[in-house]
Design a protein around this nucleic acid. Structure first.
Lengths: 143, 143
DNA sequence: TGGTAATAGTTATCCATGGTAACTATTTAA
DNA sequence: TTAAATAGTTACCATGGATAACTATTACCA
C-alpha cells in the first residue's frame, strides 16, 4: 500500500483547518472540542480520564480545560477526592456542544458527497483498524 | 457518517509520531521528508512549486529547505531566472530518500495487517475523494 | 526606454499544540 | 507515621504553520 500515508496525511490540514473555521464562531478549536465531546459522552470526568482517552499528556489537558473554564463552557464540581478535579459541562457548554455537533455532522455529510455508501462504511471501519495496528506496533515507550 | 472525523483525526498523532521516530535516524521529520519526496518525484524544483503542491505558504518551505541544506541533503542549482532557487537532491539526499522510502513502505505494509485487500484499496481511493470535497468546499479564502 | 507589476524568496514575529521536568497537594499503604 | 503513588499545575522548550513587510529580479507596456 505504498503512498497510503501520503494520502492520509495530505487530508489532515485541509480538514483540521475547516473544522477550526467551523468552530471559530464559538472560540473553539478542534483540540478544545475534543474535551467538550469527551465530557458530553462520558459524563463528568477528571483530567486523567481525558488525557488517557486521547493519549496526550496531563499538562496538555490542564491547558485545554483552563481555556474552557475561561470560556465558561466547563466547570469544576466536587469529586470524592480532594486531588481530583471533576469537570462538567455548563449550560452554555451544553448549548455549544449541540450547535457544534450539528455543524460537524453537516460537514461530515457534505464531505462524503459522491462517495458510495459502502465505500464510506469500509473507510469508516478501516481507520480504527489501522490505528490499532500503529498503536500496537509500539511507540518507543510502553511495549 | 457521524463520527467519521473523530476516527480520521485520532489516527493522526500516532501515525505522525511513528513516522517521525522512523526518520529520526536521519534527523528528518515528516515535514522535511515531504520536500525530499517532492523533489525526488518531480525533479529539481523551486520553492514555489513545493509550496503550491502542499498548500503551504512560502516561508514554511524556505525554512524546510534551509534545514535540508544544513543537513546537506539538498543543494541549489542554477535556474534560468536569477530570482529562482532551484533545489535538487544531493547524493546523500538520494541515499536517504531510498532508506526512508523503504522504511516507510514497510510501515505502510505493517499497518495494514489483518485488513482485507479490497478494504485497503477502497480506503486508499476514498481518502483523496474526501480531500477533493473538502478543498472544493472552499476554505475561507479562494472560492 | 523608463517606470510600474508581478514574481521568487527571505526575515521577523506571532500563534497553536504538544512534550518534559520539576513541583505541590493529597491519598494509599507499609 | 513515613514512603510511595496519584492528580494536577507550572515553567520551559520544540515543531510547524501563518502574516506582514521586505529585497531582488524580471515582465510588461505606453
Amino acid at each position: 500500500m505504498e503512498g497510503f500515508f501520503q494520502r492520509y496525511l495530505s487530508l489532515y490540514r485541509p480538514l483540521i483547518t475547516r473544522m477550526n473555521e467551523l468552530m471559530s464562531t464559538y472560540e473553539l478549536s478542534y483540540s478544545l472540542w475534543q474535551v467538550i465531546f469527551y465530557i458530553k459522552n462520558n459524563g463528568p470526568s477528571t483530567l486523567i480520564d481525558i488525557a488517557n482517552n486521547y493519549n496526550v499528556e496531563k499538562p496538555t489537558i490542564t491547558r485545554r480545560v483552563h481555556r474552557l473554564e475561561e470560556l465558561q463552557m466547563v466547570k469544576q464540581i466536587p469529586g470524592m477526592d480532594r486531588r481530583e478535579k471533576v469537570i462538567q459541562l455548563t449550560e452554555a457548554g451544553e448549548g455549544i456542544y449541540q450547535a457544534c455537533r450539528k455543524k460537524i455532522t453537516a460537514l461530515e455529510n457534505s464531505v462524503m458527497a459522491g462517495i458510495a455508501n459502502d465505500e464510506q462504511m469500509i473507510t469508516f471501519q478501516t481507520l480504527p483498524k489501522i490505528q490499532e495496528n500503529i498503536m500496537r506496533g509500539g511507540g518507543s515507550k510502553s511495549e
